[in-house]
Simulated assay, not measured.
Amino acid sequence: MSGKRDLYIGIMSGTSLDGVDVVLCEIDTSSCTLISSLEYPLSLELKADILTMIEGKSTLEAVGQIDHRLGLLFTQAVGALLIRENIEVSSIKAIGLHGQTLWHEPTGEYPFSMQLGDPNILTAKTGIPVVADFRRKDVALGGQGAPFAPAFHEFIFGNINSFVSIVNIGGIANISILDEKLIGYDTGCGNVLLDMWIAAHQGVSYDEDGEWAKSGSIDYGLLDSMMSDDYFAQPYPKSTGREKFNKAWLQSCLVGKTHNPEDVQRTLLELTALSISNEVLRFNRDVVLLCGGGAKNSFLVERIKALTPNVEVTIAQNADYIEAMTFAWLAYKRVHKEIVNLKDVTGASDNAILGGLYE
Rank of each mutant, 00 (worst) to 15 (best):
S298A: 09
A295P: 04
V288Q: 01
D286S: 09
R303V: 06
S275A: 09
N297R: 05
R285G: 06
S275P: 06
L250Y: 05
V255E: 01
K257I: 01
T272Q: 01
P261N: 14
A273G: 11
L290C: 14
V264I: 15
I276P: 05
L271D: 07
C291P: 03
V255S: 04
R303F: 08
N284F: 06
V288T: 07
E262G: 03
V311P: 09
C253A: 13
N310E: 09
L281G: 07
E270M: 15
L268F: 12
E279D: 15
S277W: 08
R303I: 09
V301A: 07
L254S: 00
E302I: 04
T258E: 14
V280I: 15
S252N: 15
L269D: 11
T258W: 03
V287E: 04
L274K: 14
E302D: 15
V287A: 04
L274Y: 12
T272Y: 07
L274N: 10
R285F: 00
G256C: 07
N260D: 11
V287K: 00
L269Q: 15
N297Q: 09
G294K: 03
F283Q: 04
A295T: 06
F299D: 14
D286R: 06
L307F: 03
L289K: 07
S275K: 06
D286V: 00
V255K: 03
L300N: 02
R266D: 05
L289Y: 07
N310H: 13
N284A: 13
T308K: 05
G292E: 04
L300I: 04
R285W: 01
V287Q: 01
E270F: 10
N310F: 05
R266P: 08
V264P: 08
Q265L: 14
L274M: 15
E262H: 11
I276N: 02
I276D: 00
D286I: 02
L250K: 01
R266L: 06
R282F: 03
K305G: 09
E302R: 12
I304W: 11
L271A: 11
S277Y: 13
P261E: 14
E302Y: 08
L271Q: 10
G293T: 04
G292F: 03
L250Q: 00
